[in-house]
Design a protein around this nucleic acid. Sequence first.
DNA 1: ATCGCTTTTGCCAACGATGGCAAGGGTTTC
DNA 2: GAAACCCTTGCCATCGTTGGCAAAAGCGAT
Lengths: 335, 335
Amino acid sequence: MTTIKEVARRAGVSIRTVSRVLNDHPHVAAATRERVLSVIEELDFRPSAAARYMRTGQSQLIGFLTDEVAQNAFSYEVIVGAQQAAWENGKLLFLLNTGNDPQVEMRAINVMRDHQVEGIIYATMYHREIKHSQFPADIPTILVNCFADDRSLPSIVPDEVGGGRLATETLLKHGHRRIGFVNVAAKEPAPLGRLEGYRQALANYGIPFDEKLVRFVEEPFEGLATSTYDCVLSLLQMSDPPTGIFCFNDMMALGAYDAVRKSNLRIPEDVAIVGFDNVEILAAQIHPPLTTVELPYFEMGQLAIRMLLGEVEMVRDGQPVQYVMECPLIVRKSV
Amino acid sequence: MTTIKEVARRAGVSIRTVSRVLNDHPHVAAATRERVLSVIEELDFRPSAAARYMRTGQSQLIGFLTDEVAQNAFSYEVIVGAQQAAWENGKLLFLLNTGNDPQVEMRAINVMRDHQVEGIIYATMYHREIKHSQFPADIPTILVNCFADDRSLPSIVPDEVGGGRLATETLLKHGHRRIGFVNVAAKEPAPLGRLEGYRQALANYGIPFDEKLVRFVEEPFEGLATSTYDCVLSLLQMSDPPTGIFCFNDMMALGAYDAVRKSNLRIPEDVAIVGFDNVEILAAQIHPPLTTVELPYFEMGQLAIRMLLGEVEMVRDGQPVQYVMECPLIVRKSV
DNA sequence: ATCGCTTTTGCCAACGATGGCAAGGGTTTC
DNA sequence: GAAACCCTTGCCATCGTTGGCAAAAGCGAT
């Protein structure tokens, strides 16, 4: 490893002078600067980040914690968004996956502290509530796709209600009046919020809520689409069947497609379908391509970094803020 | 930030003694150790990783570079695998996404050097060849899902040929003798290798290669499944149609499913289908669930770390080694 | 040549940790 | 009772960098 000392020796100047060149300080003769620069170039010298941190106290590091790795690895987008924003600001991202194990989580946070991270981003795979207590008070922390039980930390979450409303209104706008909703049964922000959005949209159009049109699928990942298939089939066999169906996510839309086809109906002519999540690999590939609501993961990651950097406020009126991100509609061909 | 100095002061001992306690050195009286430990606990003190590195020269950091973010974000598994293995060995992962921009790549590598990473892992989203020149010679580097043009760096790649053979033999084992292959048209290791595997499998069973059974789809991501749909339709309309179809990836299998259904045939009774990639969100959800070959991304990430740590050899007979990872078959219901 | 001013440069201390060495104190051995 | 030993502890230098301060050098004006 070449050090600043070696550069100084070769350039025939003191260490201090090299440091000045390195940091673009004034008061260095042009010729000297030139000479130092060429030695730096020649030796391919780069100052040690650790040593620099020691002196300046600026670690330039941001810790990124994730809980489990889910099937919907699309939340990877959060990481990419954060990484990109961090990079643009000269910060580096440390990645730690905790597998949702509280012990690992605690150790991970300690490791982050060891490295004097300037902030921590904690992102979950599913939108959910988490315990606040685990986070150190002395490091700025942003929650992404989750929020603290006591709202004591700033957070960024998707607007589930708005997304549900948007999906439903899309169907309403196209003239559908009987609209089915295949939801999942969990008591989590996503199913709860999307259902609320569904109700709001109906209310906006003056359509009474009909609980027979809302079905709940049990959670296990395997067979999610199959359960949806059954739901949609029974929905279509009603005496007054829906002409539009809103599916909790794109995987489930896959099951809905099968059910519609099985019923010898066409999408979107006979039955329109809207999904949620915009899993491109799925939504863009199935036939016809699925109109769906997108979870703005990339932007959420980006925003988290901006908050840590102080570009966006983290606290308003003494309260940690929660940003509720709009979920845009991705129009394809299923409506 | 509490420092070792503060701990020493409060415990009424010298810095050196605290350091000894921290590093489990002998020659510390039990009572003293106890006292120091309790102060550490009380102050919630953790030694600075940067300062420690300065003295010991052990950064414990590993840089992880990725090129672009592809639609198949499943390669995220590589990162998780690496992260987990790193964590188990007390190492930390730095994540940098370069967007496949050579300039960013160069700067990213420099940043890694600034932080004195002990090694670099470079992972690409698609299996491909890359230029070697960009990597510094003085930092151990492992390529994942790619390999250097001049083979000058150790690498880990999936066994495309073996995977293609496995997929094809799965169909052969189930009695299929006319087997179609929908490939993509690019001259890349994946399509080339899988085709070679397809040929080998046929040869093993003494079946002549029939080029009319192999179709090539142009690459654009949008409409991949649709193009496959057309291919498979024409395959099924042949006078001597295939009873088994091997699709280059799972997205394309989606198109194949549609074509088979359109032809009023059943999967797997009339036509069996095998995919590639094991994109769970897709393969496990479609009906019937897709039998497919898995890309062992997680294991590849893990192995990369093991190589960097010296648990697995990086060089044999003076040559950087290339690990060709077996791609296992995931049996579901489409064969 | 001297003075004063500005520019350029270098010395030294610091950041927070670790390791070599030696000093202090207690115990054992002759 | 003194020498030899071991256990425990502390002092100091060090890692690679930056910043405060002061010294040196250059330069124009007297």
